[in-house]
C-alpha cells in the first residue's frame, strides 16, 4: 500500500520564516536605536510628567484648601482688628474729651476764689461803722492778677471815734499790713472816697489784690 504524503502548509511555513528573517534584517540599526530611545525617553518623560502633574494637582488642591482656611482665619482676625481699631479710636476720642475736661476744670479752678475766706477776712479787717456794699472780682485771668473792688459807705454823722476818711484809711492799712499766711488779701489801694450830700454819707472804693496763701506755701516748700 502506498502512502501519499500531501504537504499543505509546507511551503507557506517556509515562506513566513523567510519573511521574518527578511524584515529583521531590513531594519537599520540607527532606526532601531532612535525608535528605542524615543520610546524609552518619551516613556520616562511621560512618567516624570505624570508624577509632576499628579503632584501639582494634589498640592494645588491642598493649597486651595489651606488658602480657604487662611482666608477664613484672616477674615476673623480682620474683624477683630476692625473691632479693636474702633475701640482704640473710641478710646482716643474719650481721651481727647477727658483732656479737654481736665483743661476746663483747671480753667474754672483758677478762676474760682475762696469767697467765704475773703469775706471773713474783710469782716475781720473792716472798722466799725463802715458798711460794705459791694465786693466784685475784677480780673480772673490768673491768681496773681485777680483784684477785688470793695465798695462801701460810712455814715458821716454816726462815726465818733475817727473821721470817715480815717476809717477808710484804717481799712486799707489793715488789709495791706496783715502778713498772716492764711490772709487772702494784700496791697489795698484807696481808689475813691466821695461825700454824698443827699444821704450824708461817704462812699468809698478800695482795690485789693488776691494772694493764694496755700499755693504760695507749697511753692516755697517745693523750692
Amino acid at each position: 500500500m502506498k502512502t501519499i504524503n500531501i504537504n499543505l502548509i509546507g511551503d507557506t511555513g517556509k515562506s513566513i520564516k523567510k519573511t521574518v528573517k527578511v524584515s529583521r534584517e531590513g531594519i537599520d540599526n540607527r532606526v532601531k536605536i532612535i525608535s528605542i530611545s524615543a520610546i524609552a525617553g518619551s516613556s520616562l518623560i511621560f512618567v516624570i510628567c505624570l508624577l509632576t502633574w499628579t503632584g501639582a494637582f494634589l498640592f494645588t488642591k491642598k493649597l486651595d484648601s489651606d488658602l480657604k482656611k487662611l482666608k477664613t482665619e484672616h477674615q476673623k482676625i480682620g474683624m477683630e482688628l476692625a473691632k479693636s481699631s474702633k475701640e482704640m479710636k473710641n478710646l482716643s476720642q474719650e481721651k481727647k474729651i477727658m483732656e479737654t475736661k481736665l483743661l476746663v476744670k483747671k480753667q474754672l479752678d483758677t478762676n474760682t476764689m475762696p469767697w467765704h475766706k475773703i469775706l471773713a477776712d474783710i469782716s475781720a479787717m473792716v472798722p466799725k461803722d463802715v458798711k460794705i456794699t459791694k465786693i466784685m472780682k475784677l480780673t480772673g485771668d490768673s491768681d496773681k492778677n485777680t483784684t477785688i473792688n470793695i465798695e462801701g459807705t460810712i455814715d458821716a454823722a454816726i462815726s465818733k471815734t475817727a473821721s470817715p476818711l480815717e476809717l477808710v484809711s484804717y481799712f486799707a492799712i489793715n488789709i495791706s499790713e496783715n502778713k498772716a499766711d492764711d490772709f487772702y488779701l494784700k496791697e489795698a489801694v484807696i481808689k475813691m472816697v466821695e461825700f454824698d450830700d443827699k444821704n450824708n454819707i461817704y462812699n468809698f472804693r478800695i482795690q485789693t489784690s488776691l494772694k493764694m496763701p496755700r499755693e504760695e506755701n507749697t511753692e516755697k516748700e517745693g523750692v
Binding site: 532606526v31 520610546i39 518619551s42
Partner: peptide
C-alpha cells in the same frame, strides 16, 4: 524604517 520611526515618535508627540 520610516513606519517604525513614525510609530516610535508617536509617544513622544503624545508626551
Amino acid at each position: 524604517s520610516k513606519k517604525i520611526l513614525i510609530v516610535s515618535f508617536a509617544p513622544v508627540i503624545l508626551t
